[in-house]
Design a protein around this nucleic acid. Sequence first.
DNA 1: ATGAAAGCGCTAACAT
DNA 2: ATGTTAGCGCTTTCAT
Lengths: 336, 336
Amino acid sequence: MVNYNDIAKLAKVSPTTVSHVINETRFVMPETKRRVLEAMKKLKYQQNLLARSLATGRTHTIGLVISDIRNPFYPELVQGVEELAVKNDYNVFLCNTDYDIEKGLKSIGALIKRKIDGIIVASSQVDSSIINQLMDTDVNFVLVDWGKRNVGVDSLYFDYRVGIAEAISHLVSLGHRKIYFISGPKTLKTAKIRIRNFIDAVKKHKDSNLDYKILEGDHKIEGGLKAAQKILKGKVLPTAIVCSNDLTAIGAMKAFKAGGIKVPDDISIIGLDNIALTEIVSPALTTIELERYRIGKVAMELLLNRIKDKKLPKQTCIFKTKLVIRESTSQRRNDN
Amino acid sequence: MVNYNDIAKLAKVSPTTVSHVINETRFVMPETKRRVLEAMKKLKYQQNLLARSLATGRTHTIGLVISDIRNPFYPELVQGVEELAVKNDYNVFLCNTDYDIEKGLKSIGALIKRKIDGIIVASSQVDSSIINQLMDTDVNFVLVDWGKRNVGVDSLYFDYRVGIAEAISHLVSLGHRKIYFISGPKTLKTAKIRIRNFIDAVKKHKDSNLDYKILEGDHKIEGGLKAAQKILKGKVLPTAIVCSNDLTAIGAMKAFKAGGIKVPDDISIIGLDNIALTEIVSPALTTIELERYRIGKVAMELLLNRIKDKKLPKQTCIFKTKLVIRESTSQRRNDN
DNA sequence: ATGAAAGCGCTAACAT
DNA sequence: ATGTTAGCGCTTTCAT
């Protein structure tokens, strides 16, 4: 492994000068510089960032903790983070927690030992043990779409309220009065928030006398399908359904199709997430958009700021969500 | 930052002993060990893996280079790699090349400077400049689904031949004689291989007098859609279409639906990849399965072996592909 | 059974 | 304009 000494000898300078040439951190005579660069080339020098990191205390490395890269929620977020990271000469360690808090803690522990400059935690399963671990080690970190708010940490949230309110208004304006909600698993903080936002939105329309009901899904296709089957067994069907995420909505659509109920003719459906899938299924799904790429990018931005200046006041970014109307919602039929 | 010296002082031992306690690398009297562990706890010691890596020359870190995490091909592969990596106490740097060779080269350069123990390159845009860079630095690396074969490097491939042959046989047995192929971008080595495998499969059935034609897509929905529109303009429609990947097939289905052509009644369609989407679209897509999770896992396995023993003979793993029959293929209609 | 000391490749304060 | 030197926190050989 060739190092500064080898280069220095060949170029007849000191290792210090080599360092300064490489980092452009003080003036070096053009001629001297030339010799150093030439020596580097001749020796096929490869920098050792570990050694630099050890000396400087900065690794230019971050950790990104997510639940499961196969969940369509994550790829765009990861892209947003990675892109901005690379642009700033950072590399990112990707860690899947597999929805397992223990694994999350372990991953974060490993990242800290690797002396990453910061961590973005975008795992849905974040609880206080994780926050504690992060706080204890005073590593730089940013929380993405974590349930709780205002705890004095850098964090980014989606404001589901706006989008869900738009969804309800949209349905009401189409004549719907009986609207069901298929939720996510109630263990998830973000799922609970969505339920609350749904209820709040419905309550806002109390003059239209809305009838609603909440069923539990699991944020996967399967759960949406099962919930919809349960709905099908009821005496009076709702005329519209809002789902806690797109996969749930797609599962529900599947069940209705199988049950001979037409979407949107017989029943309107709205999802949440706006994953790529929603444009592909038919009917294309009306849904609430989350800007996942952007939240990833901004998370990285916050982290970079935090790395630059530990003293910076903690920031919170709220990302508005908005309704994207496609084909799965329509006017309520009169005979319904 | 607390280090071995701090622990050593508090425990009244030498830094050497601290090291040996932590790594369990030589016998230490139980009592001494206890004191060391206690000191570590008291000081909330956090290991510095950078320093260890610098001393040992091993980072327990690998790089995973892919084209674009938003491409549904990758998440499962990444999962396979990451899971096995973590199981072996490795962390993985994820790098998106964004289908850009320059970016790929830059990423690999960065990884090498970070002294990763190995690299898995699963970017579809691998060309000789990348191979050269890898060879030059004699870093450990593994190539996934790269176009060329047998170049004396560890590599993993999908054998599209089997799956595509099964697809053609399936179509022929359903009475289809006019079968088109919508390819990927011809700049992609793997796309070219798929074309060749299609032609070979068709030629095998020369006694059934097959009529075929090849159109170019882009491995995205858009390309499939456009190619299908072109097909729709032809005088005689094919009765079946095989696509170079699932997104292409889904695009084609969309175009046919819009054109009033029913799948599979009027035309049968087969995709390739077996991404999650294929089960969700309707009709569910008949497709050729690629075991992406497994290829990721095995890639990591090969890399671990390579890291353990540089001298190991280079390995090549071929992954069979197979047809998954769903709803988008059916008997050719007599009037066609 | 434990310790001293050199070294991994780099940076940076202090000289000159 | 360049060099000397002392670390960064760990491992590991060689002593004792």
